[in-house]
Write a protein that binds this DNA or RNA. Sequence first.
DNA 1: TGTAGTCAACAATGAGAAGT
DNA 2: ACTTCTCATTGTTGACTACA
Length: 235
Amino acid sequence: MKNLLSIRSYSTKPTRHSHHFNQLVLPLRGVINICVGNFNGKVAPSECVVVKANEEHLFTADTEARFVVVDMEHLPLNISSSQYIVFAINSSLRSYLTFIENQLENKVNAQLEQAMFEIFSLLLAEQPLLPKVDNRIGTAISFIEQNIASQLQIKRLAESAFLSETQFKKLFKQQTGMTVMKYLTKLRMEKAQALLTHTDYPLPIIGEKVGYKEPSAFSRKFSQYFGLSPTKFKK
DNA sequence: TGTAGTCAACAATGAGAAGT
DNA sequence: ACTTCTCATTGTTGACTACA
């Protein structure tokens, strides 16, 4: 069995079938109709379908749809031990899929493709495995990820999801398991941690990049979240 | 059943001062 | 250059109720 990354625009086997390896299907554009296990429905970009080895499945897609198909002999533990057939993927993996598409459509390089597969596996292993989220909450999450440096207010996020503030807060908690603010803080702190580790930006700039106008507010939040100040973390 | 509004309690923030 | 603290202000949450 050879681990394989490929880009497809339609099902090569539009009949029920199975194979001895695991297969992941990740839409880039358009929607795929998939029937696997007890799941029978549509899968859109930002989501991933897991077809475990020897599991019967069937998928069809519109001609304009594009998706990454990954054949894997061994699934990372988070995926193999999960009950989810469809789950939401994070922004890092989404960005990486675009890279994969670009690379596979322009070059043939076996060594690079093996490295790409390995990076894909690592990104997959760190997916938080949130269930397939409501589209409106998915939209708001994308909005948060794209505007992490802005002063994000629930009112504005609720608008982006076409929900009232109250409904938005309820649905967000229900879908992600955490409040809007907790989710936002988690993203901000993870980004701050990455900027402190990988860049030489001064603290006020890092604070700004993760949405804190005041360095003091950033420093306080970072200390609360990680248990040590940004400066001590950097050392 | 899903959506929306109200409200009290609590948390987060900005500004500024002082200290390291 | 950065952290820590205080204080006033603003924002958010969650429980509850009402409505279609």
